[in-house]
Design a protein around this nucleic acid. Structure first.
Lengths: 236, 236
DNA sequence: ACCTATTTGTGCGTATGTATC
DNA sequence: AGATACATACGCACAAATAGG
């Protein structure tokens, strides 16, 4: 009597080895024939195990080429703090940002409401991409109240970091006030930026971040590539 | 060269016949041997097709018994006083729940890990729909540790409320330990339940809830219709 | 441009185990 | 207890896609 099927044991072994880093994302696993020899089983048994991994999205097979470890979804915590860079560094990925557009203009209705601005006030708009290991993860557009942050765009252009630009303006810390998450199909523009196909699922987050005094500092809309990101909601 | 694989053609044929009503929910399909004779293929080829249906949740096989059509879109047991207190909805809608399936079985690896169970322990499985104003919002599957909640399914069936069933087991309060949110395309099953088209974006949440002592009580996966739901993440 | 070895995909046949009826 | 039905596993063969020389 076997408590667990052979193929299940092999699948578990491969999962452990992938988790342990024996095979990294993008690496090719040994061929089915090799694995069959190694485990002393028939190739079909290995295939059953690999099918289990593939169904869970952990590997991807290409006929004629091999079976490759899939890139893990970046886990993006939605805690109190907003720290894109630290989040990704913690998961072993190298984050980067590419700014696509910066400008100062009058706030739209939604922006003014979210930032508690009166009508006709200016906001700094920053649009760009967030990348992990060079792969686009998300496209964002954020609005900051210009009256409170007169030199924000200059500082941002110089440092390339939102956090540093805010620090330069005397805002040492800012936290998430609210975030709404929804799913939608990517339009052509978002798809182009994220390198996915139009209609592919994306996560939309709409967030308001405030400083230590509760003053709204940032109103941001972010679209995450659905196949590359998981948002984690964790109690603080 | 076959444009489509034999097993894929057989899977498509079976899907059509199920959709056409040749086999209704709960009905048993012809045995693998019969299907193999009918299609003039090896039994393994039929199994490949059936595995495809099973993976999509359209059929469910029971060793020794047969393969049965799943997805009773029709009604199922239902308690009346359903208390679905979720802060996910804009006010003014009347929430309800419809339970599709309840059973007790051995925990899968993921379930055991999330609930901190040792191998081979039983879990109660509850599947169902969450609705607002009669419109399906989400389809969920939750696992509860059977050892700690021996009478849970009875209580749930009697009360129709997860909260009340947990209260009856002495668990006055349980809180979210972690929730992960991702976006994906709806498969045929989820699309059918949610009344959306296959491939439409859905929100997947994977949550672990714990009791006051930190004991994992519920491991739940929920798929929300992307165009009907926004999840709000608010600091406590 | 072509060939070849490698690798995954499909399909068949057989045998045995195990759960259900 | 026996028959039925699904689950697992092995072996063989060929097709199709890929990669490299």
């Amino acid at each position: 009597m076997t408590a667990t099927a052979l193929w299940a044991a092999i699948a578990a072994t491969l999962r452990n080895e992938i988790a342990a880093g024996a095979y990294g994302p993008g690496d090719r696993l040994p061929s089915e024939a090799e694995l069959a020899r190694r485990f002393g089983v028939n190739r079909h048994t290995v295939r059953h195990a690999l099918a289990d991994l593939a169904q869970a999205g952990e590997v991807r097979s290409r006929r004629g080429a091999g079976v490759f470890v899939a890139a893990p979804k970046a886990d993006y915590p939605l805690g109190k703090r907003v720290r894109f860079t630290q989040n990704l560094l913690a998961s072993g990925q190298t984050p980067s940002r590419r700014f696509l557009r910066m400008e100062t203009r009058k706030a739209t209705g939604a922006e003014a409401q979210a930032l508690a601005l009166s009508d006709g006030q200016d906001v700094h708009i920053v649009e760009g991409l967030s990348l992990a290991d060079g792969e686009p993860l998300a496209v964002f557009r954020s609005a900051f109240p210009a009256a409170y942050l007169p030199r924000f765009l200059n500082d941002l252009a110089n440092t390339g970091s939102v956090s540093e630009a805010l620090t330069a303006a005397g805002i040492a810390d800012y936290v998430r006030q609210s975030t709404r998450v929804s799913a939608e199909a990517a339009d052509a523009i978002a798809a182009g930026h994220l390198g996915i196909s139009t209609g592919a699922p994306v996560l939309r987050t709409v967030a308001v971040n405030v400083d230590a005094q509760g003053m709204p500092i940032e109103f941001g809309v972010t679209l995450f590539a659905g196949d590359r990101v998981t948002l984690s909601v964790l109690p603080d």
